[in-house]
Design a protein around this nucleic acid. Structure first.
Length: 355
DNA sequence: TATACGTGGCC
DNA sequence: TGGCCAAGTAT
């Protein structure tokens, strides 16, 4: 028995998930909303995205509204979601859609692919979901489903073209958008990484991995090695009027464009003894404990927090600013920076309560 | 092809 | 606790 799109679509019609960015069955969704949700969902869980998506749509209801917004406002709306280059590209993409496409998203995979922040997956997903094009949207869910279904032994990401070919071969001529979403829903709810619910799967009979009993060993992928811990010092300078000394990180690279208190470099061999030389001003710094620990995708970070007071009239050093206590909520702080500020008692909001 | 790029939840 | 994982993209 071979897998068929009809079996998946029948399952999808009964079990499709209700999601904020998903319209009712049979309705054509707004490309802007589909696109925004796809960008947010890159490497990010639905639970994390939901509150951001709702706020984002209320704040920027149309692609024109997003394009017209200041970049600081976009970064602030994204703060806490991670992978901040997504926010920069999102903004650039909105401006390109307005300036080069008359405010409407291209309705082809190729047209979408040429926009900033839209790669192979997102181009396929938007083309399929928003425009019902027969495009393959190969994400982690689809990779898992297809490598199991066909027992594809090749390592990812090398096997991706093969997965894509399999998806295109199964693609129905009608309802390609539902097929794309059904594939993802199946991966997210049935064909899960651990303990897949094979008994409930519409493709349980043709699934080669299930037949062999090896479903959990797919997809095959190379192990990636963890980076070495980096260390550094963070300096929280609070004026007596409550304002905190801040700066903005360079637009590209780690936490690009996000707000932070001044810090030393973050290095594996950082020596805390010389931390005073990295401070933004010469004053009496108090070392706080314990240090802030944070884990990025490619390395763990340990920041020792130093705090000091400054007179109310103090001016910020070049390239830095004092932000009033009442306006800290408007700054685009990353989660690691919120931990630093909380350690210093300069900000009462933890990452978890940011919503 | 390999690496940089966040964050929070789960076991 | 530590490694893995979540609707990837850019370089």
């Amino acid at each position: 028995m071979l897998p068929s799109a009809a079996d998946l679509l029948a399952w999808y019609d009964r079990h499709r998930r209700v999601l904020p960015w998903r319209v009712l069955a049979g309705e054509r969704p707004d490309a802007y909303r589909v696109w925004a949700s796809e960008i947010m969902l890159q490497q990010t869980t639905i639970a994390a995205v939901k509150p951001y998506y709702e706020r984002f749509m209320a704040r920027f209801p149309t692609v024109a509204a997003l394009a017209a917004a200041p970049s600081e406002e976009v970064m602030q709306a994204w703060a806490g979601l991670g992978y901040y280059s997504r926010a920069r590209n999102l903004h650039a993409c909105a401006m390109a859609v307005v300036a080069e496409h008359g405010g409407r998203f291209p309705d082809t995979e190729e047209g979408l692919r040429s926009l900033p922040g839209i790669g192979a997956y997102t181009a396929g997903a938007v083309a399929a979901i928003a425009f019902d094009r027969p495009a393959a949207a190969v994400d982690g869910n689809v990779e898992r489903v297809m490598t199991r279904l066909f027992a594809i032994e090749d390592l990812l990401p090398g096997a991706r073209p093969l997965v894509r070919d399999r998806v295109l071969a199964l693609m129905p001529h009608d309802r390609p958008g539902d097929f794309a979403q059904g594939l993802m829903d199946l991966g997210a709810t049935i064909c899960t990484p651990r303990n897949p619910a094979c008994g409930l799967c519409p493709w349980r009979e043709p699934c080669l991995a299930r037949i062999a009993g090896t479903q959990e060993s797919f997809p095959r992928k190379a192990k990636k090695k963890a980076g070495a811990t980096r260390y550094g010092a963070a300096f929280v300078l609070t004026r007596t009027d409550g304002a905190v000394l801040l700066r903005t990180r360079p637009p590209k690279g780690l936490l690009g464009g996000m707000a932070e208190v001044p810090t030393s470099e973050w290095r594996a061999d950082y020596e805390l003894d010389g931390a005073a030389q990295d401070a933004p001003v010469v004053t009496r710094w108090r070392q706080l404990a314990p240090p802030v620990r944070h884990v990025f995708t490619h390395f763990p970070l340990e920041l020792t927090v130093f705090a000091a007071k400054a007179p109310a009239g103090m001016q910020a050093p070049p390239g830095m600013r004092f932000t009033a206590a009442g306006r800290l909520g408007e700054e685009p702080f990353s989660s690691v920076m919120l931990k630093v500020l909380e350690t210093a008692g300069a900000y009462g909001m933890t990452p978890k309560t940011r919503d």
